[in-house]
Design a protein around this nucleic acid. Structure first.
Lengths: 330, 330
DNA sequence: AGTTTGACACCTAGGTGTTAACCT
DNA sequence: AGGTTAACACCTAGGTGTCAAACT
């Protein structure tokens, strides 16, 4: 039942058709009207912190929003935004919650490396997007607990707009300012964790990392990367989806809502997309923490490596050999 | 070292428990008696060539052996062996064939890059095994056709002994000679293709590559690599396993036999395991064809790169700067 | 003497921010 | 003037055969 309908790929998820479907624009995706102050359909689970009020509450699709914890991670950059993602109405799914035992009602998702995330967030996290696709740094890494060990789940990630605004970075004040309304929606993309599907036991034993996920500004992307607009604010979300409810799951459709799907997000992971870094503090922190940027670290700058040596030699080396050099240091 | 990021897990297949089970020796694995001339339980599918007699025949666990096609790929190295794998009795599986429509009776698996395989085979293919695990070169790459597009399958690979012999390479005659009986069996390992499980449609759309598979001689390996004895002859096999029949599938147990499992092997992929190459022709061909060995190609040997340049500079460079060099080329 | 091991130089493959050119 | 792009040097990560030493 509900196996594979019109999608060319019968197998529900793994290597879905990126080719044609990828070019189809997003339709019933999200409202672009001004509802930036409501946060339904947005279940949050802050880090190690539990909600004071009703932690596990989850009624249908309108669930609690953990906006209060945002206070722990103030963003000094966005005057008009509160870093809470827009509502994104999703098609009503027919999938029911897991039958029998624990339905995952108490499932918890904990962000790993949130200290680093918060350091970025305090400055105002920026993520570069390129045509070919760029990884996020830091990458989303979560630890999942209280799954049913014997049930099968998909773990997926998507990234939703925080508001309907477009931003601009004002250098002289080192602040992000609203620069207008958001651009038109991009094709929906979902990053399905490559280990999916797997048992609850498997997911819980490891840290689930989304480091292979890539961001792009190419709306015609056919690599399955997540498509975003530059100079917009976004909120990554993690979805835990029961296997039986994953039939509608696709890299090129919005994550289906329903009883078998639980969604988590972390306010400190909000970021602004850029094609080149705006805030130099962000650049510094990225260089300092991302191993792949080690070449730009100060210790690397002051190096006296082979190239520097060759350069200094080149300075006093003649274009043609100098006879006086042929018998060095006699 | 390659993918140590994966932690052990107990999900049915994906990344099964490598930890403890891996240390358990193989028990009901294969007979080491002298039945080297019989080939039951060994279904073969030669390349593009079809069997002349009964191609798709497959009755229970005793299936046809495609030994005849071996004549196409003569091995000049092994006097006593005929490159046909030993029988390996497997536990009787309770899984029945796929219900309803096509059971995959006509499934075909075609070896990709068989030209290269045959060039190696003509010399006498050798594969290096190391403690840390070594990839195969060439890697097994197959194209699968005539699966049921809507069924789910696992694709797996294992490697079985060709005979009960241990070999030795005699340099002066450039030939492999029998050097005694095989060592005692190693723990069984199965490489489950990382895209598993996937639909028939998904598998058929792509070339299925086993290039991430690694070979090791470490019987205590906990990385999930395939454990082999050095100086023995082996035959890789590809298994197509119905999802419903994959419950017994595990990286550390022999591939379950049964109606839902089909097995394919290609005589030209037989190889002898070594810890250092014996036949220099093999070394040359590996260097010539494996991109990662490009540094050993002749064209690479004659390079005049930066290092060579620096070396030559060092030859006539003085220990202290020469004044006459401060104003070059006036 | 035959086989195995580990350090090594040399590659592939690809993730960084930088920079200059380009676009609008 | 602000935003984007592509080439680039510089990294990480890891797959090669080589070689000398160690093992048995």
């Amino acid at each position: 039942m509900a196996e594979k309908r019109r999608s060319p790929c019968a197998m529900s998820v793994k290597a879905h058709a990126f080719s044609v479907e990828a070019l189809i624009g997003a339709e019933k995706r999200r409202r672009t009207s001004g509802d930036g102050d409501l946060f339904p359909g947005y279940e949050d689970r802050q880090d190690v912190l539990d909600l004071p009020g009703s932690p596990g509450l989850r009624a249908g699709r309108a669930s609690t929003s953990d906006q209060g914890s945002e206070a722990d991670c103030p963003s000094d950059g966005s005057p008009e935004s509160d870093d809470a993602p827009l509502e994104r109405p999703q098609p009503v799914a027919s999938c029911a919650a897991a039958p029998g035992t624990g339905t995952g009602e108490e499932t918890r998702v904990e962000l790993q490396g949130s200290d680093l995330w918060k350091r970025f967030h305090e400055i105002g996290t920026e993520m570069i997007i390129t045509k070919a696709g760029r990884r996020m740094f830091p990458a989303m890494r979560v630890k999942i607990t209280d799954l049913d060990p014997h049930q099968q789940y998909y773990i997926a990630m998507d990234i939703i707009p925080v508001d309907n605004k477009r931003y601009r970075y004002v250098y002289h004040s080192s602040k992000w300012m609203v620069a207008g309304n958001a651009d038109s929606p991009v094709p929906p993309r979902v990053y399905i964790h490559p280990d999916s599907p797997a048992s609850g036991e498997t997911w819980m034993r490891q840290v689930v990392s989304f480091d292979k996920l890539k961001l792009t500004n190419n709306e015609l992307d056919d690599q399955g990367h997540i498509i975003l607009h530059s100079m917009h604010k976004y909120q990554p979300r993690v979805h835990v989806i029961h296997k039986e409810c994953g039939d509608d799951l696709s890299p090129v459709r919005a994550v289906p809502d329903g009883e078998g799907t639980r969604t988590f997000s972390f306010p400190e992971t909000v970021f602004t997309t850029v094609t080149a870094y705006q805030n130099q503090q962000i650049t510094r922190l990225k260089i300092d923490r991302n191993p792949f940027a080690k070449g730009f670290r100060d210790s690397g700058r002051n190096r006296m490596g082979l190239e520097a040596l060759v350069e200094s030699y080149a300075f006093w080396r003649p274009s043609q050999p100098c006879p006086c050099q042929e018998y060095p240091q006699t």
